[in-house]
Design a protein around this nucleic acid. Structure first.
Lengths: 170, 170
DNA sequence: AAAGATTGAATAATCAATCTTT
DNA sequence: AAAGATTGATTATTCAATCTTT
């Protein structure tokens, strides 16, 4: 048994140097750094948290600027209940309204209001400029494209539901 | 004024299609997907949240398996107060202890206990195997290396403090 | 029985304020 | 006055349970 434990520790120590652990760590740190650089502008300049921005962005890009709650949850980093609360706050701010789904009475749409559309369209240009600047500081345009292609493959593999939408008359 | 507003909306709509926005979105989604794939094993199998894992991993790799609270906060995705709470929980679990800094009486070290070392070394091999599997499902080994190099440049640019350590006798 | 959505209870994260030491 | 660290108060997120509809 002591033998087994000693082996386990040695195995753990060897794994500490595995380059895959570094890859994941770099991804986490890069994204944390980007968030620290980008979120204050959204928050202070446009009154939007990262989550509220994410939800409004999904809606403004969707047909009729609306999406089922379940689809919105699948497309964002939020759980179903977490999404309910975020939409509650957006409704309270007048940026989103809820509408019942005509073909499935269990379902609800979150729908962008005119005010919500104005808010997200006002926020995006500065946000995009900051993303562009942050990427340009680190990488050439070609490298940004490479990175995008690689991350897209990874995203498609680990979260294939990111583009999920319930079909009408589903 | 109506003119100006119409221009603003048009500018916002144009920015919606900017590829840099897509790049960031893919990064966020990829990492959310990886977290969803990796965290349950840490949590259910080893009793470690992502944050507690991150802290223990930093400590086990540091000289004397110890780090100043401020450095630990800079190296993780946590604020100073957030780190205090995480270390509180790790101390309560017996995985970390606090020691005062002998050369600066304001400072404290978080120090890995023997139990903490055993816990993190037990968790790492399975975690690494899962990272490797997730990456291999999406990318070739060469692509993983490319991705790592690009993300490293990005990390170095956006969060240069990720390797911060207060020098002894500072 | 299962899916869509919400709610209550519990957990965790942050900001601002505070205390001590430099 | 500024840095290191912690605490109180607030806000946000999740899990499990619930309700309605399919």
């Amino acid at each position: 048994v002591a033998r087994r434990t000693a082996d386990d520790l040695a195995e753990g120590r060897a794994a500490l140097d595995d380059p895959h652990l570094t890859t994941l760590g770099l991804l986490v740190e890069a994204q944390a750094g980007l968030a620290a650089a980008l979120l204050p502008t959204l928050e202070d300049g446009h009154g939007l948290s990262g989550q509220r921005f994410e939800v409004l962005l999904r809606l403004v890009r969707s047909p009729d600027q609306r999406l089922r709650m379940t689809d919105l949850a699948a497309q964002t980093t939020l759980s179903a209940s977490g999404l309910t609360r975020v939409v509650d706050r957006l409704v309270a701010q007048g940026l989103v309204r809820r509408e019942p789904c005509p073909t499935d009475r269990r379902g609800w749409f979150a729908v962008l209001t005119a005010e919500g559309e104005a808010r997200i369209l006002a926020a995006v240009p500065e946000h995009v400029a900051e993303i562009r600047a942050a990427l340009a500081r680190a990488l050439s345009p070609e490298q940004v494209e490479e990175l995008t292609a690689l991350v897209r493959r990874l995203r498609d593999s680990v979260s294939p539901d990111a583009a999920r939408v319930t079909p009408p008359h589903g």
